[in-house]
Design a binder for these strands. Sequence first.
DNA 1: TTTATACTTTTGACTAATCAAAAGTAGGAG
DNA 2: CTCCTACTTTTGATTAGTCAAAAGTATAAA
Lengths: 218, 218
Amino acid sequence: MITSTVENYLKALFLLDQDGEKEISTGELAKSLTVTPGSATSMIKTLAEAGLVEHRPHYGVRLTNRGRTLAVHVVRRHRIVELFLVEILGMDWSKVHEEAEQLEHVVSDEVIERMDVLLKRPAFDPHGDPIPGADGTLPNRSHCSLSKSNVGQQLSVARMNDQDTDFLQFAEKHGLMIGAKITIIEHNKLADSLTIKTSNDTVVLGLSAAANIEVCDA
Amino acid sequence: MITSTVENYLKALFLLDQDGEKEISTGELAKSLTVTPGSATSMIKTLAEAGLVEHRPHYGVRLTNRGRTLAVHVVRRHRIVELFLVEILGMDWSKVHEEAEQLEHVVSDEVIERMDVLLKRPAFDPHGDPIPGADGTLPNRSHCSLSKSNVGQQLSVARMNDQDTDFLQFAEKHGLMIGAKITIIEHNKLADSLTIKTSNDTVVLGLSAAANIEVCDA
DNA sequence: TTTATACTTTTGACTAATCAAAAGTAGGAG
DNA sequence: CTCCTACTTTTGATTAGTCAAAAGTATAAA
């Protein structure tokens, strides 16, 4: 039985390694789900028995094709729901993540399909994350991290890697929304900070915050 | 903790006795939830400990005010979601019940409020059931059962008491939608049947099916 | 008053998911 | 080669919900 707990484990594994190249450690998985390592181990065993992951004890775990397919569909549901909540219900982009976290486990394929049509088959969610197709394909855009961009570059905000409500509200307040045009004014290596000019503001970000913002050439 | 199981028990109790006048027996509750009587008994004990129902062993169970308030809110979520699925996503009224059955446990108050606004604060769901207000008030319309109406009366379909997909599809096919104008042609007491004229058809219904359709004067 | 019947409650067992804490393992430092 | 550290796995307990079947109770009929 694919319970919502199972879906959450699969989704976490997928998001920790989108390309399915590396093995994820039990601890990493446990931390991302905020459960104890012991809980993760026992669920990993269950998933392995169900053929959804491959487990090399003491080394790590990796999604099988079946597991990956299921995970991608959960992510698709999540992102379509998020965009729907923003576009159709007018909710704040900083709050829809939590809501979608619940809804992703219960909305039927028919509802997702109708939302998808209503939204005109969108490619990206409100945070700039790509929405997988019903067939499991992932559109990919080549982004680069704001923390690795150069001073003077004209950039466009493409994606937020941190879904935290407070972070997103902070970003929005300073004009850092998806699609916003920005310029890097200064990179202070000593202060570990980046000074950025947005349309309505000038912000100073630490590099770790900047690492969560992806940009592309404007 | 108010789990979705708890919500389902409370909702079932509410729907079995909207006015809160009578006690519901364990068996009746168990049947409406398709669980064994033993399961119902043990959940009733849990609910009683939580102050959500009053239980007189061997006689029956009744919602407390707190239990009733919670139940009404679940019903509100259910009905708003149903109407939303029909009106905004264009789903078939015969299928939205199942979907809402899942969603009612996870949609937040904010989402419900936004749906409610988008739907212009509707009073009735797609099956003609009244939608409780956010304050717990229930609009009530005086209907009467089709099975108790008289030959020759000009009637209007007001509400379906059976949410079964097949039944609703059957009803729709013969022009028995909410608001449809109908006339009773014949009541055959021997055959236990009612012959009804709708705008596009003439249907013969057994009295038990007719009992699930509520009507009001046209 | 006794008995039959229909219902309710109790009991014991099971599944899914969790945690805390004990036991075990991999791999590097001495 | 031994030991330390950091991690993973195992073990045992807990909670929520369920069922099947045994035991108990209310009520009406004989």
